[in-house]
Design a protein around this nucleic acid. Structure first.
Lengths: 329, 329
DNA sequence: TTGTAGGCGTTATCAT
DNA sequence: ATGATAACGCCTACAA
């Protein structure tokens, strides 16, 4: 492993000079600079990240914490996009990244978690889909020991920002679209889980729509569960015109139940999962740009690390209809 | 950040003594040991990974390279499980991990890739679902600069092992099960992509079955594409008794086409995606334990790093039928 | 059994 | 503009 020392010898200069060249410091003659660059090139020099980190040149490390819902399955599409967007963005910003699953975070005490992250030289954390039950992570955010960015959870302080789409607006938009096209006025709204921060926001959007359009609305707690949504649909959808669901998985459950009952009522979802294309019912849903969200979250974390203030970032969403032909490859 | 120095002061011993205790060296009195352990506990001491790495105690770093097929979608379930299994396993072994997407690897020259990995102090690499077109990664393996483990690709040398299920056997097993239950003798086999290493193995298993059971078999190249499988089914399935697909996505395409044509023929897939539960046709498929595979791959990489020989590891598979009730939550 | 001291590869401060 | 040199936190002979 060739080190800065070898480069210095090869170029016939001091170690510190090499360091200056490598880090683009001023006060280095062009001549010396090119000499050093040549030597580095020739020896295939690669700076040692660990050593650089040790000597205070903290190449900031980010921890990405993703939240696989229960076991794995259809919804992982979302996490994969989060990861992809975040990792790519981090590389562009020259940030080192480690990936963690939220389980690892909640399994240990807040202190252990902190220490672990410190030991890993973590300076920033991006948490995807934090929910109200993850107390450890929340405490971590509040401790302000690290710069944190939460996706879909409203935590803001001096060292933390949050990013998400406008969930209320999105829920309003997608429901409005479906209701208008189908002349529906009696709605079953299957909400998300009480422990989800987006649940309230989406419900709020729905209530606004109901008020504006004088809709009759029944609200049920679907817990983001396909099975629960299916049951609820069986019980509550009979006298309704349409079913609005706070997630695609629940929309799938609702639609399936309706099909089983051999009646058709329009259903809409939320997230834009490919799975929706398989339903064959042209359901409207909200497409969130997960990769973009993750990318922005990482950038925001970077901004915080550079002294920026914590803030709330709202990203765009889009109402779409998922067709089989569009989702298959 | 509390360091080994603080622990030493707190325990009233020398730094080196603390180090010895922490690294389980012999020749430390029980008394001193417990004194140090107490101090470490009290101060929430966690060794600094970067520093440890610097001073020859190379806490090996692993790079996980995952291969998102084209864009994101249903199949990401697999990659998430790979990631989860690998990250968990790595943590248990005390390995540091970075996650990369294969795109990043193929975008740069082999040299750039090497340099990047060296700069990151990577010593081991686990590559999931490598295919024949990824020349950069293949060159990386052959260079023997790093210890590598490939999943589902047959690369073995002094510093690399491979792990996978027995694809031939698995294809044989699942097809046999379906064929027996349906008394099928004229088969359409929709194979995977020519650039996939598992494609040939699975075909081989299928050919063995065809020979043994004297089946009439038509083989088509489905390229692991749902759309292609759909087209092929339309063209070739008419006079067949059953359709065997080398992937679940293709099985979905085949089944959908058959449904559209309003005829029923048994179809089986390969992988065990949750999506199969939504088909409502009780298709057989092969469940691979992706988490377990990833976990074993990481362990194997660790073994290589400790001087083990490169080898081939075969993990178990299981023929299952995916039911809606089993996959939903 | 315990402590001392040198070194890992960089960066940063301060002379020169 | 350049070069010594002291950290950074830890490991490891080697000395006591």
């Amino acid at each position: 492993m060739t080190s800065i020392k070898d480069v210095a010898r090869e170029a016939g200069v001091a170690i510190s000079t090499v360091s200056k060249v490598l880090n683009n410091y001023p006060n280095v003659s062009d001549e010396t600079r090119s000499k050093v660059e040549e030597a580095a090139e020739k020896l295939h020099f690669v700076p040692n990240a660990a050593a650089a980190a040790l000597s205070s040149k903290q190449a900031a490390r980010l921890a990405l914490i993703i939240n696989p819902s229960d076991k794995f399955g259809i919804g992982d599409e979302i996490n994969m996009q989060y990861l992809s967007g975040a990792i790519l963005s981090a590389r562009n910003l020259g940030l080192d990244v480690i990936t963690l699953f939220s389980g690892m975070a909640e399994e240990r005490t807040p202190e252990q978690l902190q220490q672990y992250l410190l030991a890993q030289s973590i300076t920033g954390i991006v948490i995807f889909s934090l929910n109200k039950e993850q107390k450890n992570l929340q405490e971590l955010i509040r401790s302000e020991l690290f710069y944190t960015v939460t996706v879909d959870a409203p935590f803001i302080n001096a060292k933390s920002s949050c990013v998400s789409i406008d969930n209320a607006k999105a829920q309003y938009d997608v429901a409005l679209r479906m209701i208008s096209e189908n002349n529906a006025s009696k709605i079953l709204y299957i909400a998300g889980a009480p422990n989800g921060y987006v649940t309230d926001e989406r419900l709020e959007g729905m209530e606004k729509l109901a008020a504006e359009k004088a809709l009759s609305m029944v609200v049920a707690d679907g817990r983001f569960s396909e099975r629960t949504a299916r049951t609820l649909t069986g019980k509550l959808a009979m006298d309704r015109d349409a079913v609005v669901c706070a997630s695609d998985m629940m929309a799938m459950g609702a639609m399936r139940k309706l099909t089983e009952m051999d009646i058709f009522k329009p259903v809409c979802g939320f997230d834009g999962l490919s799975l929706m294309g398989y339903a064959g019912k042209h359901m409207y849903t909200v497409r969130q740009g997960f990769e973009n969200i993750a990318s922005e979250a990482v950038k925001e974390c970077c901004r915080l690390m550079n002294g920026g203030e914590g803030r709330k970032i709202i990203l765009p969403h889009e109402v779409v209809r998922m067709e089989y032909e569009d989702v298959i490859r």
